[in-house]
Simulated scan of single mutants.
Amino acid sequence: MPMLALPFPTIDPVLIEIGPFALRWYALSYIVGILLAWRYMRAAATNDRLWGTAPRPSPADIDDFVMWGTIGIVVGGRLGYVLFYNPAYYLAHPLEAFAVWTGGMSFHGGFAGTVIAMVLFTRARRFPVWTLFDLAGIAAPIGLFFGRLANFINGELWGRITDVPWGVVFPTGGPEPRHPSQLYEAALEGVLLFFVLRLLSHRFGLLCRPAFLAGAFAFGYGVTRSVSELFRMPDAHIGFFAGGLTMGIVLSVPMILAGLAAMLWAWRRSDAR
């Protein structure tokens, strides 16, 4: 082990185990992320200063949506991982596709699943679907932050080999120190993106322009994820694409383009009123 490398901290991936019941850090990260995101969305929806005359969901609407959103995240995230990252394995072991507690979730799949859940949920509600997209967008970095911390605790999705003094030797990553790319993603996709979106929503009042903040989230996530991919090691069974691209970058490009389009559309639409 190089002198400057940091050993991987000894953290049991199982937080509590009582008989057959085991609560893993991975599952806990989803629970905490969803609960905090729910409370944040609720607080934003009840802040009159942020909305002006724009229609918005009631606190009860936010409460009702939590279950819809959770199903969209879990089902979409798992299905995305199965289809995008390891289809051959799960085709040979189909029952393991349901073992979400073992890890293996795709953000891009979870994003798609949540979008579908929001569209279905708002069909019978009295506010635009874009408004729910905006609220979910400003809260999503909370869940991303906790999810990436759980990836680090699980010792998965580690980075490329490095000689930086904070390189970490992961138990399953060989003897070489690697970038703790999970922590980079927690900082970029979680902390940085959260504060940028909070500035846009609370300081500049952009919740009054439906679709802008949803676009800002999609764009911001796509950019920060692409930056993180420069340090993250792609899945061994996928590897690099032409030009050094990774699956994470390939899936993020449409989000960047869609985010830009949504922000431009929201700005022009609001100015045209």
Score class of each variant (00 low, 15 high):
52 G>R: 04
52 G>N: 06
52 G>M: 04
53 T>I: 14
54 A>Y: 10
55 P>Q: 11
55 P>W: 11
56 R>K: 10
56 R>Q: 03
56 R>S: 01
57 P>H: 08
59 P>N: 05
60 A>S: 13
61 D>K: 02
63 D>G: 13
64 D>E: 15
64 D>A: 14
66 V>Y: 01
66 V>K: 01
68 W>V: 08
68 W>F: 12
69 G>V: 07
69 G>L: 09
70 T>Q: 03
71 I>L: 15
72 G>M: 01
72 G>C: 04
74 V>K: 04
75 V>R: 01
76 G>R: 05
76 G>L: 06
77 G>S: 08
78 R>V: 05
79 L>W: 07
82 V>P: 02
84 F>E: 09
84 F>R: 09
85 Y>H: 06
85 Y>S: 07
85 Y>I: 05
87 P>T: 12
89 Y>N: 13
92 A>W: 06
92 A>K: 10
95 L>F: 13
95 L>E: 04
96 E>Q: 14
97 A>L: 06
97 A>F: 08
97 A>D: 03
99 A>E: 06
99 A>G: 00
100 V>S: 00
100 V>W: 06
100 V>C: 00
100 V>L: 11
101 W>S: 10
102 T>K: 14
102 T>N: 13
103 G>Y: 04
103 G>Q: 02
103 G>E: 04
104 G>R: 07
104 G>C: 11
105 M>N: 12
105 M>R: 09
105 M>H: 10
107 F>Q: 08
107 F>M: 06
108 H>D: 02
108 H>S: 06
109 G>T: 02
109 G>A: 12
109 G>F: 04
110 G>W: 00
110 G>T: 03
110 G>K: 00
111 F>W: 13
111 F>N: 01
112 A>W: 03
112 A>P: 04
113 G>N: 05
113 G>P: 09
116 I>Y: 06
116 I>M: 14
116 I>T: 13
117 A>L: 07
117 A>M: 07
118 M>Q: 11
119 V>N: 02
119 V>Y: 12
119 V>K: 03
121 F>V: 12
121 F>R: 09
122 T>R: 04
122 T>G: 06
122 T>A: 11
122 T>K: 01
123 R>M: 14
124 A>N: 14
125 R>T: 10
126 R>H: 15
126 R>K: 14
127 F>A: 02
128 P>F: 04
131 T>N: 09
131 T>R: 14
133 F>L: 15
135 L>H: 03
136 A>W: 12
136 A>D: 09
137 G>A: 15
139 A>L: 10
139 A>Y: 09
139 A>D: 09
139 A>C: 11
139 A>M: 10
140 A>K: 03
140 A>C: 13
142 I>Q: 01
143 G>A: 11
145 F>P: 00
145 F>I: 02
146 F>I: 07
146 F>P: 01
148 R>A: 07
150 A>Y: 08
150 A>V: 11
151 N>H: 14
152 F>T: 03
152 F>Y: 12
152 F>P: 03
153 I>M: 03
153 I>R: 01
153 I>H: 03
